[in-house]
């Protein structure tokens, strides 16, 4: 079948990449800050959230997911949702053991 994820070229302005890079550096700073602050068991959630945001930026802008059709985005969302649910179930054990 045609047309589900047809490719097209996108020229992304340098400014976008610089902005994403700055955002990634800020998130890196947030990771370091979380390590210094005593969040107890919640620091895991904070770190996972920050890591997800970083990965999202890389996927959307550097890997051009932003310009793909909805099918590919939906597939990736499903994979991430699965991973999130798996981690949540792990913590349903570890946090209440």
């Amino acid at each position: 079948m045609q047309g589900e994820t047809e490719k097209s070229d996108h020229i992304v302005p340098y400014g976008t990449y610089v902005n994403v890079w700055i955002a990634l550096m800020l998130l890196l700073a947030a990771t370091i800050a979380v390590a210094k602050v005593e969040f107890s068991k919640y620091s895991v959630f904070a770190n996972l959230l920050i890591a997800s945001l970083k990965a999202g930026l890389v996927l959307f802008f550097f890997m051009h997911l932003k310009y793909e059709k909805w099918v590919l985005k939906a597939m990736l969302f499903m994979v991430i949702a699965t991973l999130t649910a798996v981690i949540a179930l792990f913590f349903a054990d570890v946090m209440f053991r």
């Binding site: 798996v86 179930l89 349903a92 209440f96 053991r97």
Partner: peptide, 17 residues
């Protein structure tokens, strides 16, 4: 995909899980 814990009911896993 999310039912794997039923293999581990006697493993010492938390009651919640």
């Amino acid at each position: 995909y999310f039912v794997w814990g039923h293999h581990m009911f006697t493993s010492g896993m938390s009651d919640t899980a």
